[in-house]
């Protein structure tokens, strides 16, 4: 791929806050029209990276170009062309839905006639017509989020940064929200969205997993499963608790996750027949159960990369 097709092109981004290294050596290459996900737990540096890419935070070191513009020196120019939906609701709570959108339209200096039609169009697209005269403070979580997205795309940005846009939103609203995102991506908007929901991450075209400020894995959700260097064995046991204790005792096991009666056991690829290993270990302890090797889910990937990182860090 040619560098020019990359909407976001970052090399070795670092950002420290005093002694805290919030982001370490993150490189990104996001092509046009992609929905790119940032998956990571709290404090993993998602917001900090997004802010650097918007030109709101200066990187401690590293370079980044967004839409071909240097985030250090050309951030003002960049602001005309990107949309940013902050993690925290940042429109004016004491203004109405309509007033908020009008304000944003004026601040982006959208021409008079176009301004009105654009605002009206967004109100109906985002199902906010009935709420137009309601103060933003009194909107529900889902309505607030729609309003914030409407404000972020009002000036038709080519690149959209969404920082955990769907926290505090129910599953139905989340699905609708993603419909909108896919629509935007189809029209050529590039979207970077951070989340800590696996199901959302699953929908992204491309994905980066952040852990303590480091990008520990990236690729399409499917590729990531193949990359983790471990297999997943699922156990459905009558006594899941005892089974879990038995698995934890096995030195080969990297991690055990319990999902109700099911256990997902992660075993590194260095073990040839992981299912057999699990079966014999259970038999030894007289635990009944159904054992099967399954393809890794994104959650497994997430656990794998973060656990392995943790072990590496402990070793170092």
């Amino acid at each position: 791929m040619n560098d020019r097709d990359l909407v976001v092109n970052a090399q070795g981004l670092c950002r420290s806050f005093g002694p805290v290294k919030a982001v370490r050596d993150v490189s990104l290459a996001i092509p046009r029209g992609t929905i790119y996900g940032f998956l990571g737990p709290n404090g993993s540096g998602k917001s900090t990276t997004i802010r650097m890419l918007c030109g709101l935070l200066t990187p401690t070191s590293g370079e980044a170009r967004v839409l071909g513009l240097d985030v250090r020196t050309q951030s003002e120019k960049l602001k005309q062309q990107i949309g940013y939906m902050t993690q925290r609701f940042s429109l004016y709570e004491d203004l109405t839905v309509l007033e908020n959108l009008q304000f944003i339209a004026e601040v982006y200096a959208i021409a008079g006639k176009h301004r009105k039609t654009r605002v009206e169009q967004l109100l109906s697209d985002f199902d906010l017509q009935e709420k137009r005269r309601q103060r933003a403070a009194t909107l529900s979580g889902g309505q607030k989020q729609r309003l914030a997205l409407a404000a972020a795309i009002l000036h038709e940005p080519k690149m959209l940064f969404l920082d955990e846009p769907t926290s505090a939103v129910d599953p139905q609203n989340r699905r609708d929200f993603w419909e909108i995102l896919f629509g935007l991506a189809e029209q050529g908007t590039t979207i970077l969205v951070s989340t800590h929901y696996m199901d959302e991450a699953e929908r992204c075209h491309q994905l980066a997993i952040l852990h303590r400020g480091v990008k520990v894995a990236d690729g399409s959700p499917r590729d990531l499963g193949r990359q983790i260097g471990a297999s997943i064995v699922e156990i459905i046991a009558d006594d899941a608790n005892r089974a879990r204790i038995a698995m934890n005792d096995l030195s080969e096991v990297a991690s055990v996750t319990q999902l109700g009666v099911r256990l997902r056991v992660m075993i590194p690829d260095s073990i040839a027949q992981p299912a057999e290993l699990v079966r014999s270990a259970l038999q030894e302890k007289h635990i009944e159960g159904h054992v099967e090797q399954v393809p890794p889910s994104l959650e497994d990937v997430f656990v794998a990369v973060t656990e392995m990182r943790g072990q590496e860090e402990q070793a170092a």
Binding site: K79, I82, T86, R88, S90, V107, Y108, A151
Partner: peptide, 13 residues
């Protein structure tokens, strides 16, 4: 304090 500034400084104002 209310978080509006992060949005405002990201506009061309």
């Amino acid at each position: 304090e209310r978080g509006n500034l992060e949005l405002l400084i990201n506009t061309p104002v």
